[in-house]
Every structure is written in structure tokens, then in C-alpha cells.
């Protein structure tokens, strides 16, 4: 009985985090992006500096009509937002936020699980792109596919480097084996992982598949109302998941300079928040990469770097033993 209660509490906590954290990131993006552009951002909703802007947006989305185009593949079209969003919820379950058993569900093959499920999230965009029966959506879907192919590889390679270093593919195990000098050791892998993750989330500057100014939000062109909101939510959930994973794999998760007992979860949250800020920062600072530049960056820069990182990890690992 206590076992069941424990599972329910854990799942509930993960679900609440899944609902709250993306909104926090979204609101932060509103404000940070505004101030980086010399603006104020939302100031009215909720009274104090527009804190309730995303709530208001959600209400607006919920009120809108749910339109399915006549030529669309109806079932796939309606299913796509869920396919895009749910994988991130599943990934969140496996991310440890503190020492011991402070994790939704400890998965033995954590890294495999997480990367595989994150890849599924991209399928949502491809389904949406194909099912919309729209030229822009199809272009967006194809670009999404190309981007997934290009960036999944460096991401997996970088994660493999950490798995080699820790000698385990369990996320909890990676954190248990962590030492502070892993950060400089795995820094290149971390950068590759983070960059590839950004590209997989189709965040600017890697937002060619959704490029609103040229292919009108790509796969999401035909979506309105709540389904569109789910796609947006999945983007921000993706940011949370990517930053959380980078924190766990490359920045030592709950390890911190002090406060090791009891405050570990705070370190995880702090590092994730800083990374989320960097995600927003990159979006504000850089222009969108062209499609060929995207592919070039993945195949000629990130993959060689990831391979070099694996070689370095292997050499250091042998030397230590």
C-alpha cells in the first residue's frame, strides 16, 4: 500500500513539475527576451509585471476554435500534439533531481531511455507536418526530419562519452560516479550535447523547421487553439528536459560546492535554470541558421567534436586505471 502511495506521489510531483516548469521558462523567456531587446515585456496580466501572461495566453488558446483542415489526415493531425508533448513528460520521470532516490523512477538504462524517448517527441512535428496537407507544413516536417537525423547522432555520441566515463548508462549511476573534474573533462561533449539538443528542440538559432518568417511555423501552420498551445508547451517542456539532462550528464546534477545533504535538488534546479537562461539568451542573440548551414554544423563540427570527446574520454579512462 505504501508502495502504491509512493509511486502516486512521485508521479504527481513529476506531473506538477511538468506543468509548472515549462510555464516558468516561458514567462522567463518573455521577460528576459524583452529586456535583452530594451523592452519591458508583458506588464499587465496578473498585475505585477505581467506574471500571469501565460495563464492569459492559455485561456485564450482554450477559447479558440479547434480547426482541422478538410484535406488533413484527421486522426494523425489530432494525435500529433500529444505525441510531441508526452515524451517529455516521460523523460522528466527519469531525471534525478537529488541524491538517493529523489527521482521519479530510476531507470537502469536511463541514458538510452531518455534519448530514445526524446527522439519520439520530434515525431510529433513530423506527423503534424505530413497530416496537415499543407506545403509549408510538409516543408517544415521534412526539415524536422532532416534535423533529427543530423543532430540525434552528436547528441547520442556526447551522451555515450559520459556513459563511458561513469561506466554506467543509468542517470542515477552517472551522478553517483561524478567528480568535479568531470566538468572540464567532458566540457566539449557537454557543449555538443547542449547544441544538438537545442537543434532537436528546433529552438532558435536552429529553428529552420518552424521558421515563422518563411514557412509560417512549418508543421504547426494549420494548428490553432489548444493543439497549437500543446505544441508550444512541448517546446518549453523540451527546454526543461534538455537543460535538466545536460545538468545531470555534464554539470553534476545535485553535486554542489556546499550543502550536499538535503539541498541537492536545489543545485539541480539552479543549474537547470541557468541553462534555460542560456537557451533564451541564444535565441535572442543569434539569427537563424540556413538549412545547409544547419546540416554543415552537425556533420562537420558537432560529430567530429563528439567523436574527439569519446576518444579523450577513452584515453583518460585508460590512464586512470
Amino acid at each position: 500500500m505504501t508502495g502504491t502511495l509512493d509511486v502516486v506521489v512521485r508521479l504527481l510531483a513529476v506531473f506538477v513539475a511538468f506543468l509548472v516548469l515549462p510555464l516558468v521558462v516561458g514567462q522567463t523567456e518573455h521577460k528576459v527576451m524583452a529586456h535583452m531587446q530594451g523592452r519591458l515585456g508583458p506588464m499587465y496580466a496578473g498585475g505585477f509585471h505581467g506574471w500571469a501572461q501565460l495563464v492569459a495566453d492559455g485561456v485564450k488558446f482554450a477559447q479558440k476554435e479547434d480547426v482541422v483542415p478538410a484535406g488533413a489526415d484527421r486522426r494523425i493531425f489530432q494525435l500529433a500534439p500529444a505525441v510531441a508533448l508526452l515524451p517529455y513528460l516521460l523523460v522528466l520521470v527519469a531525471i534525478p533531481i537529488g541524491p538517493g532516490n529523489q527521482v521519479g523512477q530510476s531507470v537502469d538504462a536511463g541514458i538510452f531511455f531518455v534519448l530514445a524517448v526524446m527522439g519520439v517527441g520530434v515525431l510529433g512535428s513530423m506527423m503534424a507536418g505530413w497530416a496537415s496537407a499543407n506545403k509549408f507544413s510538409l516543408l517544415g516536417g521534412l526539415r524536422t526530419a532532416a534535423q533529427l537525423l543530423a543532430y540525434e547522432l552528436p547528441m547520442v555520441l556526447a551522451a555515450a562519452s559520459v556513459a563511458m566515463a561513469a561506466g554506467t548508462v543509468s542517470l542515477v549511476g552517472v551522478l553517483d560516479a561524478f567528480h568535479w573534474w568531470w566538468v572540464p573533462w567532458q566540457i566539449v561533449g557537454g557543449l555538443v550535447f547542449f547544441t544538438a539538443g537545442l537543434a532537436e528542440l528546433q529552438r532558435p538559432p536552429f529553428d529552420m523547421p518552424v521558421a515563422d518568417s518563411e514557412i509560417i511555423f512549418g508543421a504547426y501552420t494549420e494548428y490553432t487553439g489548444l493543439r497549437f498551445a500543446l505544441f508550444l508547451l512541448s517546446e518549453y517542456a523540451g527546454i526543461v528536459v534538455l537543460c535538466g539532462l545536460t545538468t545531470v550528464l555534464f554539470l553534476g546534477g545535485w553535486h554542489g560546492p556546499f550543502g550536499a545533504d538535503g539541498l541537492g535538488w536545489l543545485w539541480t534546479l539552479l543549474k537547470t535554470a541557468v541553462l534555460a537562461f542560456v537557451v533564451i539568451w541564444l535565441r535572442v542573440s543569434y539569427p537563424r541558421l540556413r538549412e545547409d548551414q544547419l546540416q554543415k554544423l552537425a556533420w562537420t563540427v558537432l560529430i567530429p567534436l563528439a567523436l574527439a570527446q569519446i576518444a579523450l574520454t577513452g584515453v583518460v579512462k585508460v590512464v586512470i586505471q
Binding site: V32, A34, H35, M36, Q37, G38, R39, L40, M43, W281, L282, V284, S285, Y286
Partner: peptide, 21 residues
Amino acid sequence: GLAKGLAVTLRTMTRRSVTAQ
């Protein structure tokens, strides 16, 4: 050049915004 771009946005964030309310 990439670092310069980041520095520009970060510096702008620390300054007062120009929005007229």
C-alpha cells in the same frame, strides 16, 4: 563574434529598457 553577440544582448538586459509606458 558569437561571444560579442552574446555580450551585446546581456549588456542590453542590464540597462533600463526604452519602453514608454
